[in-house]
């Protein structure tokens, strides 16, 4: 129990340290793990299996979006689906490139922890890029969670526990 509490505190501090300062890119505000859990409609660990840019013709213009498909390996909240699909504003087709600065990018094979919202927006990730984390397996076979820039956050198992704990607390309220 004490060990679990300690890990939870370490996890909270790790994420707070990563997100403690406002971030701008495209410019966005910092979020904590509590914020991410509270704001996300869906939380899962998954692998990117398809990245597909496409054009959208609106009345005034042509824009580019990128559809990213995840294979869900570990659903944590809000999904029981085997795949999750999200659209991001920006991308590159043969004829048109559209870059939204700071938008996360994806490649097939990326393994990510995803905190996302279902409602339509330029970017469904909570906190723009903060609700998207790398998962990397270390030499000892332990899955570790890192920021997109590669800063270590926690073990995946600890993050999972932290999310679950916050969900339980949220339900009690």
């Amino acid at each position: 129990m004490k060990r679990s509490l300690f890990r939870s505190v370490v996890l909270a501090c790790s994420i707070a340290a990563v997100a403690a300062v406002p971030v701008r890119a495209t410019t966005f505000e910092p979020v904590t793990l509590n914020d991410m859990v509270a704001q996300a409609d869906v939380i899962f660990v998954g692998d990117v299996v398809d990245v597909r840019p496409f054009t959208v013709q609106t009345r005034e213009r042509t824009i580019v979006k990128t559809r990213v498909t995840f294979s869900v390996s570990d659903p944590l909240y809000g999904t029981s689906s085997l795949v999750e699909v999200f659209d991001f504003l920006g991308g590159e087709t043969a004829d048109l490139g559209m870059k939204v600065e700071g938008m996360p990018t994806f490649a097939v094979g990326d393994r990510r922890v995803v905190f996302a919202r279902r409602d339509r927006s330029i970017n469904p990730i909570v906190g723009f890029t903060q609700g998207l984390m790398k998962v990397s397996r270390d030499a000892g076979g332990i899955d570790r969670v890192l920021t997109l820039e590669g800063a270590p956050i926690a073990r995946l198992s600890d993050l999972r526990s932290g999310v679950t704990q916050r969900l339980v607390e949220a339900r009690k309220k």
Binding site: R24, G97, M98, I122, F128
Partner: peptide, 17 residues
């Protein structure tokens, strides 16, 4: 397109690939 979570400002760029 709604800004999404926590966005203060965005810059979007069109270019020729």
């Amino acid at each position: 397109e709604p800004f999404g979570s926590g966005v203060l400002a965005i810059t979007q760029t069109f270019y020729s690939p």
